[in-house]
Nucleic acid binder design. Structure first.
Lengths: 123, 123
DNA sequence: ATATCGAGTTACCTTATGGAAACCTGGTTA
DNA sequence: TAACCAGGTTTCCATAAGGTAACTCGATAT
């Protein structure tokens, strides 16, 4: 049995969000870590440079195609740098930029919350 | 003209990532904010509860279907709560849980990095 | 000679997911 | 009594995005 208090009218609130940075800013910034496995790539690089095939085995089951795509996107965005080492055969190292490194604490925060949600049964 | 130093051999590194939490943990935790506009919903709720249609206008051009889907996912995950107010007609408020609120600093950190990448020309 | 490895690229295919638009329910207002 | 609102749900469709697998290229290693 529903008991609505009849005189408790629905107040229509002003339909504006509080004057905070607009959501499109968020959308744009979140795009920095968009795409499959992008966060994983950053995560794998947080302890230092890694090579292409190292990343592939760090992040199974990522495919070479997707890893390659993601690495060039992240390079374009300034999150990581690609370094060809003058070895023979040449090897390629990927490393976070300073700014890219600043994403790591953010990812850590998300992981922390994820753990605690899981612990509460929202797994 | 490529000048590889011929005696600088390619050292094969041990193919294990440093002993840090495995990437699958990250994958799992990142899923908490997965799906179109999920981060935007959290972002819009960070200043307090919002109603369905308020969120729709906060986050254009989100569709009712996607917003509805996202809200129930985020509720399941323990990020937000749905509250039916005893008004007439009933209105529905969505608010971040305590744990959901802890995602806000993480999103803020990502936004901060996004801004600075943009400022450096990686827009 | 041939096989292998690092570091990708290319072609093709599938599926999940988001968008659009119509519809629904119960209460309210004109 | 017709229209309208909040708060959704349902149907249908298109496309982007990722997966698989095969291929490349140059340089060792066998």
């Amino acid at each position: 049995m529903e008991t609505w208090l009849p005189n408790m009218a629905l107040k229509v609130r002003k339909n504006k969000s509080p004057s905070l940075p607009p959501p499109c800013m968020l959308t744009h910034c979140m795009a920095v870590i968009s795409g499959a496995w992008a966060a994983n790539v950053i995560w794998s690089l947080r302890a230092g440079p890694r090579r292409f095939n190292e990343l592939r085995t760090d992040i199974p089951p990522i495919s070479a195609k997707v890893l390659s795509t993601r690495l060039s996107e992240l390079e374009q965005r300034g999150v990581l740098v690609r370094n060809v080492q003058p070895t023979s055969p040449p090897s390629v190292e990927y490393a976070l930029t300073d700014l890219g490194g600043e994403l790591v604490p953010a990812l850590e925060a998300i992981v922390k919350v994820g753990h605690r949600l899981k612990a509460l049964g929202h797994g």
